[in-house]
């Protein structure tokens, strides 16, 4: 246990760099996924069309898509012979972000739909009856479901930061370039550096824990109601910056 603790307090720049990249890749893929899934999920929820139930079922079944399968798909797309081979993204951060976004998109979209489903239909109908346009009505629904939406972001981020298959297969685990905490843990375990792997695992968990506790405390304090999460995070960042 002592050796794990020693490893944890003496983690070097390689590990911190991997941790930073884990955060960066997960956050970027999460933002991309939100930008795609939020409007698409809204469309799916608020529009009526044939096969809607089937589409939602397919999305839900994609929640448990193995990361290695996504890695394989991205690899096939980005390899030289693949349809997107000309982009030259294979074994680059872009490939990992692309893969992670693809991995979490079904979850995000499903959770957007699920968050909207939790909003009392009479609330959106009341907005519509008071003359809200479609976009204004969606804003009302988002406000009603903001905690569920926030949970969606947390789950998407957590899934992205904790995946291994994609980062390994399409990132290539290149030090100071595409190595993330999960690929580093895998590598250290294979090298027999179990204590170091444990320390990295704990660091990964701590990162996830800090993010979750921050968001939970924001929710609980009720400040989200007045300020919105992004404004509040901005304030915190400003405060940390001095």
């Amino acid at each position: 246990m002592d050796s794990i603790w020693n490893q944890l307090v003496s983690l070097g720049s390689e590990t911190w760099s991997a941790a930073g990249r884990s955060l960066w890749f997960a956050a970027t893929s999460c933002v991309i996924s939100v930008l795609i899934c939020f409007p698409l999920g809204s469309l799916i929820h608020f529009r009526t069309f044939r096969g809607k139930g089937l589409l939602v079922s397919v999305l839900q079944s994609l929640y448990c898509m193995p990361t290695v399968l996504v890695g394989l798909i991205i690899f096939s797309l980005l390899s030289r012979a693949g349809p997107l081979g000309d982009l030259g993204w294979l074994f680059s951060p872009k490939a990992i972000i692309f893969g992670q976004a693809l991995l979490i998109s079904p979850i995000m979209m499903g959770l957007v739909i699920s968050a909207y489903s939790g909003v009392d239909k009479s609330v959106t109908e009341t907005a519509t009856s008071l003359g809200a346009s479609s976009i204004q009505m969606v804003i009302v629904a988002v406000r009603e479901a903001k905690y569920a939406m926030l949970t969606m972001v947390i789950i998407g981020f957590s899934r992205a930061i904790s995946e291994l298959g994609i980062s390994m297969m399409v990132g290539g685990n290149i030090n100071f370039y595409t190595r993330t905490l999960t690929t580093a843990i895998s590598l250290e375990t294979q090298k027999g550096e179990i204590e170091k792997a444990w320390a990295m695992g704990i660091l990964l968990l701590l990162i996830a824990l800090v993010i979750n506790i921050t968001i939970y405390s924001l929710q609980k304090s009720g400040r989200l109601k007045r300020w919105g999460v992004f404004r509040l995070l901005l304030d915190r960042i400003r405060a940390w910056g001095g």
């Binding site: 009392d120 009479s122 609330v123 109908e125 009341t126 907005a127 519509t128 009856s129 008071l130 003359g131 809200a132 346009s133 204004q136 009302v140 406000r143 009603e144 109601k225």
Partner: peptide, 28 residues
């Protein structure tokens, strides 16, 4: 629809204060 207004059987209010609730139709 903007020329009408509906009050439903179940009291429905949005997640905001009383002023915000009443003002939303005007803001829209």
């Amino acid at each position: 629809r903007r020329r009408m207004a509906l009050v439903q059987q179940k009291p429905i209010v949005f997640k905001m204060n009383v002023f915000g609730n009443i003002a939303c139709g005007l803001k829209w």
